[in-house]
Structures are given as structure tokens and as C-alpha cells.
């Protein structure tokens, strides 16, 4: 499998369950490593310069990873400390990140008290707080209602467009991909298509094009 994404791209990784999206993310975050293959993040080779690569990377995992008994702010502060940032600098970055995701007024709330949409926002804010060039999101809208799903999809698109963050957005939901997005279709661990949303679907709907390509039409 091979592809590359440029700065400011919103790059959708579309694939059915088991296509290899989560494995790809585990490789990119170095939770899992192989001997063959090469991954470069913002110019840092992951196997040679793990620290540089991970510092340039923000990740939102499929499973929630917030500490429920801590406040939103404490969660972000813990994360920034893992990146070696503390004190006033951390405070400013937390404020900025929460502001971006419209979460500023919930900073002091315990995560347990937040709904699913707000928890996701807090996680995205956290993944942005250390100023990464690349943002990975593994099916970030799983389990959210339609309104939260739409607004989170919109906001992350805006992040890529307005702030030049490269976004890798893994999903199996075709309505989260737009015509102008980079689109990489994954199936059984291989790249089926590397194109744009519009280029892939042609005159069909994206959903039809996707089902045709993966041969999983019922």
C-alpha cells in the first residue's frame, strides 16, 4: 500500500470494516511496527525519527481515550505534559484549542458530564493542542447523532482548509467525503483508488461507486 498526502489536504480513507484503516493508524502512531515499508510524517521518517514524527502528529482514536473523572482542561493538560509542555504555555494552548472547537465554556466540566459529541470535540481539541501538522482521525463520528456528525465533519474540513492542517480521516461512511476531498479507497489492505471524491464517483453517487468498487453490493 502506498500513498501520500500534502499539507492542507483533507484526505479521506474510505474502506469497509476490516479494510486496514485501524492497522494503518497503528502503524502511523508506532503502536505497531513492521520491518518493511516506510512512513514519513511531515518530513520525519517514523522508524528513524520517532520523536519528530510523533510530535508532528495529532491523533483521535476510534475508542474514546479521555479520563472521565477529570475535567476537559485537565485532560488536555495531561496530554500536553506528555508532550513536555506545562505551565502558562500549556494554558494558552489549551484555551486556543478549545476555542477552535467551540468548547471554551466547557473547559471546567468533567468529561463524564459531556455528551458524545462534546467528548469527541474535546478529543479533537486535544489532538490539536500541541500544534501538529498532521491530524489522524479514526472513524471519529462513530456513535454520534446526525447533527454532531455533520458539524464535526464540517469543522474538521474547515481546519484543513483554513489552517493548513493535513487531515487523514478514516471512515466507512460515504456521506462524510466531499467532492473536493482527496479520497483513498482501501479494501483488504490495498489501495483501490487514489483520487478525489468527484473523480471517484463520476456521475454516480459516492455510495454507489464505493459499493461497486469494493464488490460488496448486497
Amino acid at each position: 500500500m502506498g500513498f501520500s498526502a500534502c499539507a492542507g489536504d483533507f484526505c479521506a480513507l474510505l474502506g469497509p470494516n476490516g479494510a486496514g484503516k485501524t492497522t494503518l493508524f497503528a502503524l502511523m502512531t508506532r503502536l505497531f511496527a513492521t520491518r518493511s515499508g516506510r512512513i514519513e510524517i511531515a518530513g520525519h521518517d517514523l522508524s528513524r525519527d520517532r520523536q519528530g514524527a510523533l510530535a508532528a502528529l495529532g491523533v483521535v482514536f476510534q475508542q474514546p481515550t479521555l479520563d472521565l473523572d477529570l475535567s476537559v482542561r485537565q485532560n488536555l493538560a495531561y496530554f500536553l505534559a506528555l508532550h513536555g509542555v506545562s505551565g502558562r504555555v500549556a494554558g494558552r494552548r489549551i484555551d486556543a484549542a478549545l476555542e477552535k472547537l467551540g468548547m471554551a465554556d466547557r473547559a471546567a466540566e468533567k468529561v463524564r458530564a459531556l455528551n458524545g459529541g462534546h467528548r469527541r470535540r474535546a478529543e479533537i481539541a486535544r489532538a490539536l493542542s500541541h500544534g501538529p501538522n498532521v491530524l489522524l482521525l479514526d472513524e471519529p463520528t462513530v456513535g454520534l447523532d446526525a447533527a454532531s456528525r455533520a458539524s464535526i465533519t464540517d469543522e474538521v474540513h474547515a481546519l484543513a482548509r483554513d489552517r493548513g492542517v493535513t487531515v487523514l480521516w478514516a471512515t466507512h461512511l460515504t456521506d462524510e467525503v466531499r467532492d473536493e476531498d482527496r479520497l483513498i479507497v482501501l479494501h483488504r489492505g490495498r489501495v483501490l483508488a487514489d483520487t478525489t471524491g468527484a473523480g471517484f464517483r463520476g456521475r454516480r453517487s459516492l455510495s454507489d461507486a464505493f459499493l461497486d468498487a469494493t464488490g460488496e453490493r448486497p
Binding site: 503502536l31 491523533v59 482514536f61 475508542q63 481515550t65 508532550h83 513536555g84
Partner: peptide
């Protein structure tokens, strides 16, 4: 299992230190 270990291990600091 809950994923917070991933958060810890994707910190850029060396894994042994974490």
C-alpha cells in the same frame, strides 16, 4: 483495552521513559 495506553505511548517521549 480502554485506549488511554495508546495516548501515553504516542507521546513523542521515549517509550522506556513513559
Amino acid at each position: 483495552e480502554m485506549g488511554s495506553m495508546r495516548l501515553l505511548l504516542t507521546s513523542p517521549l521515549p517509550r522506556w521513559w513513559l
